[in-house]
Write a protein that binds this DNA or RNA. Structure first.
Lengths: 343, 343
DNA sequence: ACAATGAAAGCAACCGGTTTCTATTAAAAC
DNA sequence: GTTTTAATAGAAACCGGTTGCTTTCATTGT
């Protein structure tokens, strides 16, 4: 036996049998064209235990052509922000895989990658879930290797699957809610790009739908010249005191939370003087700010569905149609939206 | 060429050269005892590109005996709660590895594992970081294979390294702060086990130190009979109205946030009537409740340090002493602690 | 007594790469 | 014109497993 960790060969030698016999014994591949005397079986098992033998999983993966691994790509850009929808998504993906796919493990890639770099891990994965987006190279790798995959909250690969929330419908829902309450001076707040996954469709979808909704009613959109996250108070002063907004639709819950805090400081009563509504994850919102009214992005369902679609794809890679599942967003009215004040 | 993804052999055949030549060309292993005609090099490169060749990383890992992968174990129990210290820790581990270890990737294991199961992934990892704890089997695997590893916020393996916060010192700090403000009726709130990583040392450390600190001053500890997270208002009513507590030290920020919310509902003024102090992650606290006074667990430093220790271990596995790094916790006074009211 | 059957275990190919060692040819040196 | 050296490239071993096929020997059937 060489130095270092013992291999199958070491066990075989020490037990006085061949590699194949050891392999079959340890993997319980008996009974179908192969058998061993109980005595030998026990001896091999004993030697393996004494040597503290662990199979080299890399080698195993090589012959088996599978690692029983499902990999989530994009953790770095998606999970760095605290309490956002991706954490919920990842948790529910894991939950589904753990429950429905015996023996499969879920890992998340956390490293940042250059745009021209592949995010594929150094092992063969049996399935991938992509958070919002991956690099071009990664997608080519995945397609090339024929790895089952689902994109969640982002555009599908060519011929692939994706699960996305309907931001246009959600924004309409939000605007209808505010219009319904009687608001006409509704502002929109979105943080600077640096705070968001660059170029995500939600950015333009929410913004455009907001603008269209306002224009349809013959109203002027209201924006601030400050960034909500960088200088929330300045944003709020401008939008509420100068432009007299009675409601703000916020891109995300971080912005909304900051607005709430700043409103408190500036003694702007919410919701009496100002309504605040944002896009948010149900779970995050519940925990981080139980009072906030919000448009629920249904991240729990996104995660669950993505995992289920992936498993189906893995079970039957051939007959499955490429599809784009669009999930409806829901309005959750809590205590930060109310009819506008009358002066 | 067989069906499926092209291998090194396929490229070699198509280019009319041998496997070895292709390997060396693609990996740029030229110039040291090996050379190729530029013409051949270009031809091989061209064929590889045309075939859309990707190396099988499993095979590569097998021969290279390294995957350039650093794996974080324990994501399932650690990351399922929102905005806790582990997310900060993971983010900072990744940041350090990305910055200081060129070519290494970080992955997080998210799957839940049975206690008798190994959490080792199906590939050879070059280093591991364990969040709080791992299964017995996992630890044996790691030790057996000699994989460099660091435990963060949990007990070190035999002969291994760990980075932990000093909860006893932190709790003393908290109590001194409250005593210093003049509080004598200080309650302690801790959520039920189901909300926490079972058996974590912080649970007993904080509780015991709280009790000791009270007893040293000849004061009676105050507890509630309800769970802070399950029925916060009942807890608060009992502790404040019946037992007349003027301050609450909370185990975690989730409990503290709920207390804050419930206090608002019950019209208990914070901090005038009740001071609230909790253990928390600086980052999470800042984002989720900017006003809360807290004991900072320094998770950023924990993550950074753990990663740095791991890298050192990987560079020089022999000379490094096993060590346990204990990080001081810090008091951050914000707006939820103040002197007790006088009636 | 001899062929057929089945139990028990080993041989060797294979997975897809890397690397050492060797072989061939052409250019340079003497 | 022969020997040395450098350039170029391939053969084969190896990493650590899995598995199809073969071999050996004891038992059963006729």
């Amino acid at each position: 036996m060489k130095i270092g960790v013992p291999s199958l060969n070491d066990v075989a030698e020490k037990a006085g049998v061949s590699k194949s016999t050891v392999s079959r014994i340890l993997n319980n591949r008996l009974g179908n064209g192969f058998s061993v005397k109980e005595e030998v079986r026990l001896r091999v098992l004993d030697v393996a235990r004494k040597l503290n033998y662990r199979p080299n999983l890399i080698a195993k993966s090589l012959t088996m052509r599978s690692t029983k691994m499902i990999h989530i790509i994009g953790g770095n850009h998606a999970l760095s922000e605290l309490g956002n929808i991706y954490q919920t998504i990842v948790n529910h993906i894991t939950k589904v895989i753990d429950a429905q796919a015996e023996g499969y493990d879920v890992t998340v890639d956390m490293s940042s990658h250059r745009p021209d770099e592949s995010e594929m891990p150094a092992w063969k994965i049996d399935g991938a879930i992509i958070l919002a987006k991956c690099t071009q190279v990664t997608m080519e790798d995945i397609l090339q290797m024929g790895i089952p995959h689902v994109v969640v909250n982002g555009p599908a690969s060519r011929g692939g699957m994706s699960v996305v929330p309907d931001d246009v419908q959600g924004t309409k829902l939000a605007m209808d809610h505010l219009f319904g309450l009687g608001h006409t001076r509704i502002a929109y707040s979105s943080p600077l790009m640096k705070y968001m996954v660059a170029g995500h469709s939600s950015i333009t979808d929410r913004l455009n739908t907001y603008e269209e909704a306002m224009q349809e009613k013959g109203l002027d959109p209201i924006f601030g010249s400050f960034d909500v996250l960088d200088s929330t108070e300045d944003f709020l002063k401008e939008v509420v005191f100068e432009k007299d907004a009675t409601a703000i639709l916020a891109y995300g819950h971080m912005g909304a939370l900051n607005l709430l805090q700043a409103a408190h400081t500036l003694e702007i009563a919410v919701p009496e003087r100002l309504s605040i509504l944002c896009f948010c994850d149900q779970y995050a919102n519940q925990i981080m700010s139980p009072g906030l009214s919000f448009i629920d992005l249904c991240s729990t369902r996104m995660g669950t569905l993505a995992a289920e679609l992936l498993l189906k794809q893995m079970q039957d890679p051939t007959t499955l149609q490429p599809q784009r599942v669009v999930l409806e967003e829901n309005l959750a009215v809590r205590s930060t939206t109310a009819p506008p004040y009358r002066d």
